[in-house]
Deep mutational scan, measured.
Amino acid sequence: TGIVNVSSSLNVRSSASTSSKVIGSLSGNTKVTIVGEEGAFYKIEYKGSHGYVAKEYI
């Protein structure tokens, strides 16, 4: 489990790349469930599926 550490919002992406499609966003202080790691990204549970967020903001 981690907490989103941004002042505005954090993009949730379809894969572990900054060039991948943005599938949603999370507000600061949102609790997320981390299910894996891939490079500079965490794989998280997101809306019944999975998404990826940059580690530096969790």
Rank of each mutant, 00 (worst) to 15 (best):
G28Q: 12
S8K: 12
K55H: 03
K43Y: 05
G39K: 06
I44V: 06
R13Y: 15
K47H: 11
Y57S: 09
V53R: 01
K31C: 10
Y52D: 00
N29L: 10
R13T: 14
V4R: 01
G39I: 03
F41V: 02
S17Y: 07
N11Q: 15
I58E: 02
H50A: 08
E45T: 09
S9C: 11
S49F: 10
G2L: 07
S8G: 15
G24R: 01
G48E: 10
G48S: 08
V53Y: 00
S15N: 11
E38V: 11
V4Y: 03
V6E: 06
A16C: 05
E38R: 06
T1H: 13
V53S: 01
S7K: 11
G2S: 05
T30P: 03
S14D: 14
K31H: 11
E56R: 12
T18S: 11
Y46I: 04
G24N: 02
S9E: 13
L10V: 15
H50R: 05
L10H: 04
L10W: 04
K43E: 05
L10D: 02
K21Y: 10
S9M: 12
T30A: 13
S27L: 15
S25H: 13
I23K: 04
Y57G: 14
Y57M: 10
G28P: 15
G2Q: 06
T33W: 10
L26C: 04
V12R: 00
A40C: 10
S17W: 05
S27Y: 10
E45A: 10
V4P: 04
G24W: 05
L10G: 04
R13F: 15
V22T: 07
G2Y: 06
V6H: 13
Y46D: 01
S8A: 12
G28A: 14
V35S: 05
K31R: 13
S25K: 14
V4Q: 04
K47L: 14
S9P: 11
G48Q: 09
G51C: 02
Y57P: 03
G51Y: 03
E37T: 11
S17R: 07
Y46C: 04
K21N: 12
R13C: 10
V35A: 05
T18G: 13
E45C: 10
S8R: 11
K47D: 09
Y57E: 09
S9H: 15
T18R: 11
G24Y: 05
S27Q: 12
Y57N: 09
N11L: 15
T18D: 15
I44K: 00
T33A: 08
G28K: 14
I23P: 00
I34A: 01
I34Q: 01
I44D: 00
V4D: 03
G2K: 04
V22M: 06
S27W: 09
N11D: 15
I23Q: 03
V35C: 07
E38Q: 09
I3L: 10
S15P: 01
I58C: 03
A40Q: 12
K55C: 04
V6S: 13
V35P: 00
V32G: 00
I3A: 06
S19H: 08
A54H: 10
G48K: 07
T30S: 15
Y42G: 00
I3G: 04
G28C: 08
V6F: 07
E37Y: 07
S25N: 11
G28Y: 14
K31W: 13
V22D: 04
G51V: 03
G24L: 04
K21I: 11
S25D: 07
G51M: 02
E38T: 08
T30K: 06
Y57R: 05
S15I: 06
N29G: 14
N11H: 15
N11G: 08
V53W: 01
S15Y: 09
V22S: 06
A54C: 11
N5H: 09
T30I: 08
Y57D: 09
E38P: 01
S17T: 10
N29I: 06
I44E: 00
T18I: 15
I44G: 00
S7C: 11
I58D: 02
S8D: 13
S14F: 15
K47V: 06
S25G: 06
L26I: 11
E56C: 08
G39S: 04
E45H: 08
S20E: 03
